[in-house]
């Protein structure tokens, strides 16, 4: 078991969730309640990571954040093959996993309940805090759990943007791949088996909890 890779994956997942939590609440709420010109295109862009192969996403990240990018020219350091670059990649490929469930959770709150908050004298911020968040927290928590699990398991973009630098960019998913490629060839796949089983069980638990929360949410106020 590559503990360094596991710790790095956990750290990356946690940072991604901490950043995406407020982002998904703000964007999810806007997409749920606001009508604006170009909303469909915004939603399409945010959903791109769902359909694009990680290699395409990774390629564009190399183009925009790599050694020859404008970013490097402006700030003097590229955002690839280091942890900061990994965070940016992680945030981008997790956008749909974080935003869409939050958006659905906000959409599920009937309009008159939100309006009743305003009619009770609550400011929009208080309506969010006292009415909307308590009614949508299950959706938000499941979104964040999915984001966490998805980051732990992400392989393609991480490899392209981060490479395989121990304790810097080598996450658990990369470590498994390396273990399989390295050790299967020398007929020793024990490490790969242990780490794969760990990820399988971990993902199963996270997804089960997510379903449990969503189911409870559906039955709660019937």
């Amino acid at each position: 078991m590559d503990w360094g890779a596991l710790l790095l994956s956990l750290k990356l997942s946690l940072v991604t969730v901490v950043i995406l939590l407020p982002v998904s609440i703000v964007l999810g709420r806007i997409l749920a309640y606001q009508k604006f010109y170009g909303k469909s295109i915004v939603q399409a862009i945010l959903s791109l990571p769902l359909v694009l192969p990680p290699t395409v996403l990774g390629y564009y990240m190399l183009v925009f954040l790599g050694n020859d990018s404008i970013f490097n020219k402006l700030f003097g350091s590229p955002l690839i093959f280091n942890f900061s670059g990994l965070i940016i990649a992680s945030i981008i490929f997790n956008l749909p996993f974080a935003i869409q469930p939050v958006q659905r959770a906000f959409e599920a709150i009937p309009r008159d309940i939100r309006e009743a908050g305003a009619c009770c004298g609550l400011t929009p911020l208080k309506v969010l805090w006292k009415i909307e968040l308590p009614l949508s927290w299950r959706g938000i928590v499941s979104a964040m759990m999915l984001t966490f699990a998805h980051t732990i398991g992400e392989f393609g973009v991480v490899l392209m943007v981060g490479g395989n630098i121990p304790n810097e960019t080598k996450t658990i998913a990369i470590a498994i791949a390396i273990a399989i490629y390295d050790k299967v060839q020398i007929f020793d796949n024990e490490a790969a088996a242990i780490m794969s089983m760990f990820l399988l069980v971990f993902s199963l638990i996270i997804i089960s909890i997510t379903y449990l929360i969503t189911d409870n949410s559906n039955h709660k106020h019937e």
Binding site: D112, A118, V127, L135
Partner: peptide, 18 residues
């Protein structure tokens, strides 16, 4: 709306379920 002192009883009451 939150600055208008208007008491509103909605058609389906719109009570806060939580």
């Amino acid at each position: 709306a939150h600055q208008r002192a208007a008491g509103f009883v909605f058609q389906n009451y719109a009570l806060f379920p939580h």
